[in-house]
Each structure stands twice: as structure tokens, then as C-alpha cells.
Simulated assay, not measured.
Amino acid sequence: MLGKLNETEIDHLLKEQVVGRIACQSKGEIYLVPINYVYRDGCIYAHSGEGKKIRMMRENPHVCFEIDDIINVFQWKSVIAKGVYEEITDIDEKQQAMQGIIHRIMPLITSPEGHPSHGITEKDSDVGNTVELVVYRIRLEEVTGRFEQN
């Protein structure tokens, strides 16, 4: 049976997942890439080093975000959202977003010393040796969810 997820189910799935895919478009090129994220207050919070994704979202802030929970081809849930990229520049807000991301993905990390690009290290001083992190949010504007179950 195919069906639509209600708002509560969509919210739960967005909070439950850790990896989503963000699609951005600029100058006729489409780019789709997985990201680690945390969902809070109607927004996706994430971070990245400078690169193609950030450049494209700065040029065109309208993006699409997708997550799924797949058990098998006949039992899955999926959420697709359209939203707007907003770079976070306020230091306190940036720190809160990074703490949320770190707390969300930390249980999945087996050795913190190997992840300075995510702001996760044994020593705070190790983070400074990496590329400057861009912390951003996607303010979700239109969200839909679907499912299939036996």
C-alpha cells in the first residue's frame, strides 16, 4: 500500500534520520550530495567546507532536501522538502547549530580523532587545523512525505 505521511510522521522521520541529500542548482547545473544534518524548528542545520555545494547555494539559495528510511523495496518512508539556504554568521547561533549536529552524529562515531572536518576531535585545538566550516540552515517551506508498506 502506498500512502502519504502526515505532519507528525514527517516531523518524526526528519528528526530520526542523520543523513539526507541536498540538491542545488546554479547556472544550469544541478548538484546532488549527501549531508549530515540535524532537524529543529522547521529547519535543516548542516555544515560544510567551502566548495561547489556552498558556491551553488550562495548563487541560488533555493534547494531541495530528501531523506528516506528504506527497509526493503516494498517497505519505506521518504520526505522531500523545498527550502531556502541561509548561511549562519552569528557566532552563538553557529555554535548552537554545530553542537546540535555533533550531538546528533556523535553516537555514530567510533574514533573522534579522525573527524576534525566535522568539528569532532579529542582536542578542540585540532579543529583549527581544518578548512573553515560553513554552518548553514535550510529553512523548509514545502514538505511532503510518502510511504509504502506491505
Rank of each mutant, 00 (worst) to 15 (best):
L13K: 15
L133E: 03
L14S: 15
E132V: 06
R58G: 00
E122H: 12
V79M: 14
G51R: 00
G20I: 10
V84K: 05
P107G: 15
K4W: 12
D126Y: 07
Y31F: 14
V131M: 00
Y31W: 04
C43V: 12
E93A: 03
G100P: 06
N150E: 08
I22W: 08
D68N: 09
E132K: 06
H62K: 00
G20N: 03
G49M: 05
Q25S: 07
L14A: 12
T89L: 13
E50L: 06
I35Q: 06
C43K: 12
G128Y: 08
Q99F: 04
E141F: 02
I67V: 15
V63Q: 07
D90E: 01
V63H: 06
M56W: 06
T144S: 14
I120S: 04
I35N: 12
E50Y: 15
K52H: 05
F74N: 11
V135Y: 09
L140M: 07
N72E: 15
I102C: 05
R137C: 13
G100E: 08
E148N: 01
L2H: 11
D11Q: 15
N36Q: 14
H103Y: 05
T89D: 05
I54W: 02
E113T: 11
A46I: 05
A97T: 02
I91T: 15
N6W: 11
I67Y: 06
V134Q: 07
K82Q: 07
M57A: 03
V73E: 13
W76M: 10
H118C: 04
P34F: 10
V38N: 04
P116V: 03
S111Q: 09
I120Y: 07
V63R: 10
L14C: 13
L133N: 12
R137P: 02
A46K: 01
V131E: 05
Y85K: 03
I101R: 04
E16P: 01
T130S: 05
V79K: 01
E66A: 11
V18W: 08
I35A: 12
D124W: 06
L32K: 01
N36K: 07
G28Y: 07
E141I: 02
H62M: 00
V84A: 09
G128N: 05
E148C: 15
K15N: 13
L5D: 10
